[in-house]
Nucleic acid binder design. Sequence first.
DNA 1: AATTAATTGGACTTTATAGTCCCGTTTTAC
DNA 2: GTAAAACGGGACTATAAAGTCCAATTAATT
Lengths: 212, 212
Amino acid sequence: MTSQEAGGPPGNPRLTARGAATRDRIVHAAADLMYVRGVNATTLDDVIAASGTSKSQLYRHFPSKEDLVHAVIALRGQQIMERENQRLERLNSFRGLVRWRDALVQANSLQNGAYGCALGSMANELADSDEQAVVSLAELFARWEGLLAAGLRRIQDKGALSTDADPDMLATGLMAALQGGYLLARTAHNCRPMEIALDLALAQVRTYLIDA
Amino acid sequence: MTSQEAGGPPGNPRLTARGAATRDRIVHAAADLMYVRGVNATTLDDVIAASGTSKSQLYRHFPSKEDLVHAVIALRGQQIMERENQRLERLNSFRGLVRWRDALVQANSLQNGAYGCALGSMANELADSDEQAVVSLAELFARWEGLLAAGLRRIQDKGALSTDADPDMLATGLMAALQGGYLLARTAHNCRPMEIALDLALAQVRTYLIDA
DNA sequence: AATTAATTGGACTTTATAGTCCCGTTTTAC
DNA sequence: GTAAAACGGGACTATAAAGTCCAATTAATT
């Protein structure tokens, strides 16, 4: 082999700017479709139409639909982690946690609970058919909970949260309330259950609050 | 037409005992398969093989796969509501709620979180493709929450739970924690997140407890 | 016991969708 | 400016799964 892996498409295609842009369009279109219709109900022809590309391009960048799904998970994971990191990295008060809740509830209310959480729905849909996807999603959930736990620990360090509180467990509880809330809201076509679920989880955190 | 609707298969087939038994075998086999693999990944040929029947029988009893799915939801709904009714109809103490939690956690731990909640997974999988299924599932969730709310109200009537507590909201919170817990447990291949989620939701109920 | 109606089995058809192939066009690098 | 490589379009194949049909069997009714 010469300077780089010889293989073109498969293996390690060193993309030009144009190719990278095409790949991006495909992944973004797939992510959108899979979010609103589900992974299974999204066909590759749908993705081609939505991205304005063609089948050979799609298969050049992704050897199989499964690979495309993995790319979508990576994209969604990056988007959500970026958003949540921004919201949570400086979290250091209960009020901040309430703002976090407000943002999620508002976004969900705009669509009457439809679609749910991009990561949660994929986790459910792929749970029994794509182990690699499940592993990635489990990691993302863990990182997301880690962000919450770190924020709670900062509140604790400020002395505003009792040392009796276990930040990791509370973070898991908040994430479960969020995911369960998403599911109930989606089923009821109404974001209210998600709001209630998050509020109860927040009330549980409030229990450990130490008023200044 | 004679005494009854003439139509055989479609409409209102008055089944003989044998026919009813066959129908039952089909629905039960489908329910099992759809629980462990998901609705989409379960083919009608799978159902035929597992139930020991044939395609014409399947189509005699169910005009389409969608109808079979509806029957599965009805069966699962009945099973779960029966089980939950038994566990919750005489609930009148916090200890009883803990026992409810224990039963769910133990069942989930036996399978390391796999499969999740039959209703929850279906709700997620069918959310964007089968509106009638979603309506049925939403009703089942509402009845399930109703059972919890009624139990909480009995605890309240006994004077063991503050009148400040809102049984309906707490019930929604418990259900969200349960469903979110199921999802996280399934993704992590570990029932622990579900245990934590339920425990935090229970702690929230405990907040309103009035010790005798 | 004969007749009729319901039930059953499985081969067959259709359709949707993942995945392949090839040729023409555009970009990039020297 | 030209050659080589990457990109793009879409017709084509393979396959799996839903859904149809009809002949054979079994159960009910008189």
